[in-house]
Design a protein around this nucleic acid. Sequence first.
RNA 1: GGGCGGUUAGCUCAGUUGGUAGAGCAGCUCGUUUACACCGAGAAGGUCGGGGGUUCAAGUCCCUCACCGCCCACCA
Length: 708
Amino acid sequence: HSGYFSPEKCVTDGIAHPEAEIFSMVLPPPNVTGILHMGHALMLAIEDTLVRYHRMQGKRVLWIPGTDSAAIATQNRVEKDIQKNERKSRHDLGREEMLKRIDAFVEESKSTIIHQTRRVGSSLDWSRYAYTMDDTRYEAVMEAFIRMHTAGLIYRSNRIVNWDPKGQTTISDDEIVYEERTAKLYTFTYSKDFPIAISTTRPETKVGDTAVAVHPDDTRYQHLIGTSYDVVFCDVPLHITIIADESVEMDFGTGALGVTPAHSQIDWAIADRHNLPRPQVINEYAKMTVTGRLSGLKVSDARDAVATWLEEEGLLIKTEDITQNVSTAERTGAIIEPLPKLQWWVDVNKPFVIPHSEIVGIPSGSTTTLKDIMRLSVTEGSITFVTDRYERIYMDWINKLGPWCISRQIWFGHRIPVWYKGDDTKVQITSPGEGWVQDPDVLDTWFSSGLWTFSTLGWPHNKTDLGTYHPTSLIETGHDIIFFWVARMVLMSGFLLGQVPFKTVYMHGLVRDGQGRKISKSLGNNIDPLLMAEKYGMDAVRVSLIAGTAPGTDSRISEDKIRGYKHFANKLWNMSRFVLSSIHDMPESNISYTESDNIIVGELSTLIETVEKHFATYRIDLALETIYQFVWHRFADEIIEDSKSIIVHGDTSAKQSRQALLRTCLFTSLKLLHPYMPYVTEAIWQHIPNHLRRNERALLMVSAWPQR
RNA sequence: GGGCGGUUAGCUCAGUUGGUAGAGCAGCUCGUUUACACCGAGAAGGUCGGGGGUUCAAGUCCCUCACCGCCCACCA
């Protein structure tokens, strides 16, 4: 192992100049518990190609590897295993034991993904390997939380969560299964003299209503907007105000919406806009908490009870059957109950003074907001997107951005460093003492991921690497995590360092199967990159992923395509063998080219220039196509073919010129292809006898990029 | 419902500021005592999704329609 994946080693050995330009990048950390799929392979192929290109350019290149704890996914996985094998829930095990089990699982499975990542040929600096939950990253996360809290940007407030009454837990959107069911839509009024009828599939929640919302343009209800009514609904006294809100559909039902702030996400949002009270009427066990006839009933029983009551009172106007999507919990099958719960938030709109900033448009010492950091980093040009389209998507999202909920009701993750004792609250890492209880929640996994570009460089303690390699040159990642990850990195880096996390954003698309379908377990259309590598070689896999794949667009992979590029690797091997045998007796001294050979040297020059131009715009697919075209159809089909007679029948000067040309063409081809096909090109390079290799370096990987 | 992509050769995709349509793969014909059959030579194949507009000139710019796909919000 050469150690040249480390930029310091390259400097020590004279491969990179100590003052050489930096090219730095972090690997989007794959899930510790995952196995390598084509999406990873694409990411690694693109990134490794870029990294190798820049390394050969003589830059100081750093590419940092790591793995991600993927909190929810990992905890889920382990919980499912335990449920299956031991028939126990996490509550049966308890927090401490559960975390031990998860850590053990992570420890066992992480070597798989690490090993597989290396296998792709990734020239990552493994001496800097990081895990989102290791000690250094833990310190970074705690530091970040405390600093943001101190700056007043983190606060605690209620939010409607997806509550699973059976599992007694909050669940993420990913764990929701939508089931289509028929439901009854009831249309009724709250009382005899209430002026507007409303429709709902959940009449039991109406005891929590505080308003009726109509569309501001709805002529039927214009005159009622702003009025309010006191009614007694199913023994519960309600105060209902008629409000106007744009979100109401005039055409649905009666065009009027009964607003239940505490038990519906949209209604919560309406309550936000209109400052409505938000009484909770359903508890964690999905039972009614009101007094009167509904007291203590399960929601399903309460629904029937309300329907009966409406009928008895003569308030029910009609019932109809509709189909609707019911949210159920993936694991327990229970119907999700939306409930308000205290959560931690990051306020993206609150002004604060940024002490130090290198971001264009945000001077040090100025007052700014996190949203402005995210916005100006891009609009003022500190960050460039390779594909314009993603810049627009990013900006649209930023402009509509609300507070970021950072607490998660799971156990695996960075636990929130907040302690409670009675009404007292303290924000610190360790327990303040006897009787203090830590917040049970953990942080959103993207909170720690947001720190990734600098937590991997040793922040907040070791600042040496930080000064050298941050901001990183490039982030290359899937377009599906532009909001989750890319935007959060900009936020975190901007707030904590006053820097952008990266200068350029390259987003790749989804890898689909040969028919353009998403790769999924249920379709069984997975193409295993490592299996393909065994059959056709890793270079063929890498090239088939990059060829014909423009940045940001989805691509297709098929075994046929991979096989095709195996042919190319084979062709390259054969060409090299032939060229080396044709030039074994060439003179050591420099010779002068014949006129016709000199023209070909010029072609090479143009080729190199074209490749560099494409790399500069991240069109590595086009660069590859150009090289492929030259190597196969110009170099092999024409130049080598013509050489056969020149070397046998030509005069000495023609022969020697041609031999020198073949050597140059071969070396250039190998160098240009090395970033894409590191295995074959390096293997061929090792077959070149020393007298032919002359003053070139022993490893192609660190050889100098060809001169134009 | 809101937004964004895509539609170019049989298949997968390029096509930079408008200037005579490109590549790979597949297919077809021919060739090869050979660096490589995981090969070579050659030919064929497209009214650039439909319609309209701007222009001397449109795959490219504008409008419109159709179909496919993705993202966000989801229907009380």
